[in-house]
Amino acid sequence: MSYVPLNVLKPVAPDLWIVDGPEITLNRIGLKLPFTTRMTVIRMSNGDLILHSPVEFSPGLHSALDKLGPIRFLVAPNSLHYWWIPDWKAQLRDVPVYAVPGLEKRAKRPIQVDQLLMDRQSPWPNEIDLLVVKGDVLTEAVFFHRVSRTLILTDLIENFELNRIHSWFLRLLVHLSGAADPDGKAPIDMQLTFFRSSQALRKAVRQMIVWAPERIIFAHGRWYEKDGVKELRRAFRWV
């Protein structure tokens, strides 16, 4: 199911790259399920790099990133995507970690958070817009990179390609969850966790549509290289 080649920089737009990492195993609905991983790399106008949802650390990947510019920010964009940040932090001790509220308490390994991502208070207001979407289980920071018109999500949309999944049982689960390409969206179990905050989520989705993204990147499955607004309206129709 992995999006090979792994641990290499893949250009998306000027000053924007993704890195597809190896699969990890997560517990969901009582089952251990494989998930792909994906990092987004943003280069700011001053050359600084933001690593959004870092994949597993490797010296080769670190070296490739250094050729793009200095790594200045490590971002845990939601309360699930943080696992490899302590390993990057160990190599980049002076680089601050930005994370959603509550991560330090919920994380299953120690992680030092230097600054919280709050509401619409973007740490980079001249280049990146920020929304923090809060649910009962998941809190996710949504980024909009203005120059490239790219919306950067993590788990609010999942879009698994069934032909990449070898297990028939896992294909069935993904299909039933509603997170299968070409109609990917938040899986049904995650949708239910936003029941009490549906109004706030609708407001957040409206803002994403106002931004009019050209493309949408997320962590799991085939991301959207075009028709960003159309995909947003489709993927969030459950809201």
Results as ranks from 00 to 15, higher is better:
L6N: 12
F236T: 09
F35H: 08
I157V: 15
T36S: 15
L192F: 04
D181G: 00
N159P: 07
V142F: 09
I157N: 03
G228Y: 04
P213N: 10
R120L: 05
L74I: 05
K134F: 09
H166F: 12
E23P: 12
R106S: 15
A13R: 06
P96W: 00
V19F: 01
I111M: 07
A186K: 00
T150C: 08
I128M: 07
N46Y: 03
P11Q: 12
H52W: 14
F144C: 03
L173F: 14
S58V: 12
Y82L: 02
D66F: 04
S177Q: 07
L16T: 02
R237A: 13
P96F: 04
T193I: 08
A186L: 15
Y224P: 01
N46R: 13
D129I: 06
A99C: 13
L80C: 01
F236W: 11
A235H: 11
V210G: 04
F194L: 08
S148K: 00
F160V: 14
Y3Q: 09
F236D: 10
L74P: 05
P213K: 06
V19Q: 06
Q91I: 03
E140F: 12
L176T: 05
E23A: 11
Y3L: 10
W124V: 05
I85M: 00
I217D: 04
R120E: 14
W17N: 05
V137E: 13
L9I: 02
I157L: 02
P14A: 04
A200N: 13
I18G: 01
M208S: 07
V19T: 00
K108Y: 04
L173V: 12
R146P: 08
F35A: 11
M118R: 14
L130S: 10
G102T: 05
L74H: 01
A141S: 15
V239G: 01
P123E: 05
